[in-house]
Amino acid sequence: MEQPPFAKPSVTVADVARAAGVSKATAARVLGGYGIVSDAVREKVLAAAKALDYRPNELARSMTTGRSGAIGVVVGDIENPFFSSAVRGITDVARAAGYTVILANSGEDIAAEKDAIRTLIAKRVDGLIVAPSRSREIDHLRDLQRSGRPLALLDRAIPELAVDTVTVDDREAAEAATRLLIEHGHRRLAYVTACDTPEHTYRDLADIHTASVRHRIEGFLSACEAARIPPAGRSVWLGANSRQETRRLAMERLKPPQPPTAVLASDSLIALEIFKVARELGLSIPDDLSLITFHDADWTSVTSPSVTVIDQPVHQLGTAVAELLVSRLKGYNGAARHMVFPTRLVARASVAIRNPPDTSI
Rank of each mutant, 00 (worst) to 15 (best):
V192N: 02
I217G: 00
S212C: 11
F220K: 00
C195G: 11
R214K: 14
I217Q: 01
Y191Q: 02
F220C: 01
L189V: 00
L189S: 01
H209T: 13
D204H: 15
I208D: 04
T197W: 01
A211V: 02
A206E: 15
Y202W: 12
H215G: 06
T210G: 02
R214P: 06
A206Q: 13
L205P: 09
D196P: 03
R216G: 06
T197A: 07
I217C: 01
Y191I: 05
G219S: 08
H200S: 13
R203H: 15
R214M: 09
T201N: 05
S212F: 12
H200L: 09
Y202R: 05
R216D: 03
I208A: 04
T210K: 12
V192Y: 06
A206V: 14
L189T: 00
A206L: 11
R216K: 14
D204I: 09
Y202D: 05
Y202I: 08
H209E: 15
T193N: 09
V213C: 12
Y191R: 02
D207T: 10
I208V: 12
R203P: 02
I208L: 09
H215Y: 14
V213P: 08
Y191V: 02
A190Q: 04
G219W: 10
L189G: 01
A190C: 10
Y191C: 03
D207K: 07
G219P: 12
A194I: 10
I217W: 00
C195T: 15
S212V: 10
H215I: 00
C195F: 15
H215E: 15
T193P: 13
S212I: 07
P198V: 04
F220G: 00
I217A: 01
I217N: 02
A194G: 15
R203D: 12
R203Y: 03
I217V: 07
I217R: 01
I208C: 06
G219L: 11
T197V: 05
H215P: 00
Y191N: 01
R216M: 06
H209P: 00
D196F: 12
V192C: 04
E218H: 06
Y202P: 07
T210N: 12
L189C: 01
D196C: 06
A194Q: 15
H200Y: 03
A190S: 09
A190G: 04
D196S: 15
D207S: 13
C195Y: 14
Y202K: 07
H200K: 12
A194N: 10
H200T: 07
L205E: 05
I208S: 04
E199W: 02
F220L: 02
I208K: 08
C195V: 15
A206Y: 09
P198L: 03
A190Y: 03
H209C: 03
Y202V: 05
A190M: 03
D207E: 15
E199G: 03
T210W: 08
L189I: 01
I208H: 07
S212M: 09
G219Q: 08
G219D: 10
H209A: 12
H209N: 10
D207L: 13
D196N: 15
R203W: 04
I208Q: 05
H209R: 14
D196E: 13
L205T: 08
A211R: 12
L205W: 06
L189Y: 01
E218L: 10
R203F: 03
